[in-house]
Design a protein around this nucleic acid. Structure first.
Length: 494
RNA sequence: GCCCCCAUCGUCUAGCGGCCCAGGACGUGGCCCUCUCAAGGCCAAAACAGGGAUUCGAAUUCCCUUGGGGGCACCA
């Protein structure tokens, strides 16, 4: 099936009921990519008809998440568009119009059964080990009787009249034909007793009215695909291309993630929520790259992609239908890759907020200087703080035991520092080439290893055992401060 | 219980009948480089779930089993 040549209209239709997670991000990404690639449009539609589950702020989080990832939409609730409104809560009457058409054409019917009766029926069915389904009480009610009961004020819902015989075949782009026996279909509710349409109706109506050509969504919708197709056919509409993406499994590959597991994950510095990822030091570039490759691959085995690359190379043909376990170490890898691809100024800007969050006043000019030596040493942006915090402190607090590493006595360590002080004090232009030469010579002379000498000096100057390269770091810190710090370390050793 | 989907290294995947005693990436182990940590380079271990069938030939097609996932709401 050729799908990626003519302009495609796709929609991302989340419900504002929780945080935006990786699965949604990937769906939105694919939507965006295929729309951009084909010169089509990407629409954001908010499915907010379930007022009980509605979470204020969730819509904004969604929009912020998309913006952060660089996924722009062409039409949506906050920017409008020719097929609005883009919130289902503003489209009640539209759904009713089509629900009525369905009733008129005999494809749907009014049902007056009470929720209480229905749950009793369900219970009995389950006791008999049957699949829970509507028992059909109102399915063949005469029209006059139905309208009489409606007029008398009885509560009702509208149900779809699913065929009882034969089978229904629908085509999914990744899986081919999917066929179900119609007798396994239920008479699903289309419109609730409060007059609001349910997803099954609302989404189909919106997709049609918004001229959606490809429905890209999670595979949790696969079981209701026949129903959706049947609704569309009953309305004499044309079916979109159905694309059901595989689900994401927890890292172990065993099922979806529970609330508890999500909390545990956060303790390890990972999260499936987009809003967390930013705080955890991940770049949107890496998240996009990573998520794009979970369920999609490119011919030539390339794995490093920018959003622009993906727009050019993405296609619907290489999608993989099997469930994928989330691999966070690979996110780390991509994050490192993308950090290294950032230029120094950009990286400086990106790490600045993390210093700020830790209460460290990091000035832009120093940030720019440390960016190149930090670049290949951090996997997440927040790591810049622990790796390079010492650049911004007035003084550092080395551990005495770290000042005297294995194989060296306190006396030797002190000697190294005193000698270093003298040598470095004598260097006029305090840049790395000028400081390294005399220090190397000293190493030769002392009979100690470079590791020992520079190690002690590193702890004295940076306060830590692990740091960016010593001489570059000292240059950035500056002569005065370096000497001060060495001095303090010598005192510590006394 | 019923329905639907899926099945290649630990993980993400390439493979769409011969190019595969299965390729790449992450991770892991080793070596090199090296002032620490990284980054980088090189090397290694690591998979076609099982059983039938079709075929000269199957990871690739079909069937069964097993395993995994999803769904069965007046949620989406």
């Amino acid at each position: 099936m050729k799908t990626s040549n003519s302009p495609v209209r796709v929609r991302f239709a989340p419900s504002p009921t929780g945080h935006m997670h990786l699965g949604s991000a990937r769906t939105a990404l694919y939507d965006y990519l295929i729309a951009k690639k084909t010169g089509g449009q990407f629409i954001l539609r908010i499915e907010d008809t379930d007022f009980k589950r509605y979470i204020p702020g969730a819509e904004q989080e969604l929009i912020d998440g998309l913006r952060w990832l660089g996924i722009d939409f062409d039409e949506g609730p906050d920017i409008g568009g020719p097929y609005g409104p883009y919130r289902q809560s503003e489209r009640k009457e539209i759904y009713l119009t089509y629900a009525n058409k369905l009733v008129e054409s005999g494809n749907a019917y009014y049902c007056f059964c009470s929720p209480e009766r229905l749950s009793r029926v369900r219970e009995e069915q389950q006791k008999r080990k049957e699949a829970p389904h509507y028992d059909g009480t109102c399915r063949n009610l005469r029209a006059e009787e139905a309208s009489k009961r409606i007029e008398s004020g009885e509560k009702f819902v509208i149900r779809f009249k699913s065929p009882k015989e034969g089978s229904t075949t629908v085509t999914d782009l990744l899986r081919g034909d999917i066929t179900v026996e119609n007798r396994t279909l239920d008479d699903y509710i289309l419109v609730k007793s409060d007059g609001w349409a349910l997803y099954h109706l609302a989404a189909m109506v919106d997709d049609q009215l918004m001229k959606i050509t490809h429905v890209i969504r999670g595979s949790e919708w696969l079981p209701s695909l026949p129903l959706h197709s049947l609704i569309i056919r009953a309305l004499n509409w044309q079916e979109p291309v159905w694309v059901h993406l595989s689900v994401f499994l927890k890292p172990s590959g065993k099922g979806k993630m529970s609330k508890r597991e999500k909390d545990d994950l956060l303790k390890d510095g990972y999260s499936i929520f987009i809003k967390d990822l930013k705080d955890l030091g991940y770049t949107p570039e890496a998240v996009v790259n990573w998520v794009a490759l979970m369920g999609w691959s490119y011919d030539d085995h390339t794995e490093f992609f920018t959003l622009e690359d993906l727009v050019e190379k993405f296609n619907l043909e290489h999608l993989n239908p099997s469930p994928a376990a989330i691999n966070f170490t690979k996110l780390d890898h991509f994050n490192g890759l993308h950090i290294r691809h950032l230029d120094d100024v950009e990286l400086a800007e990106r790490i600045a907020p993390y210093f700020l969050a830790k209460g460290i006043k990091a000035d832009t000019s120093t940030l720019k200087k440390i960016a190149p030596i930090l670049k290949e040493r951090i996997a997440t942006l927040d790591e810049a703080v622990e790796m390079a915090g010492f650049f911004f402190e007035d003084n550092v607090k080395p551990q005495v035991d770290e000042l005297t590493p294995k194989g060296l006595s306190a006396v030797q360590a002190k000697e190294i520092l005193t000698e270093s002080y003298t040598l470095l004090e004598g260097v006029a232009a305090f840049d790395q080439t000028k400081t390294e030469t005399p220090m190397r010579a000293y190493v030769e002379r002392s009979g100690l290893s470079a590791g020992q000498v520079f190690g002690v000096l590193r702890v004295a100057v940076t306060g830590q055992k692990v740091s960016p390269p010593l001489f570059e770091s000292m240059e950035i810190i500056g002569k005065t401060k370096v000497l001060e710090r060495i001095n303090r370390a010598i005192q510590l050793l006394e």
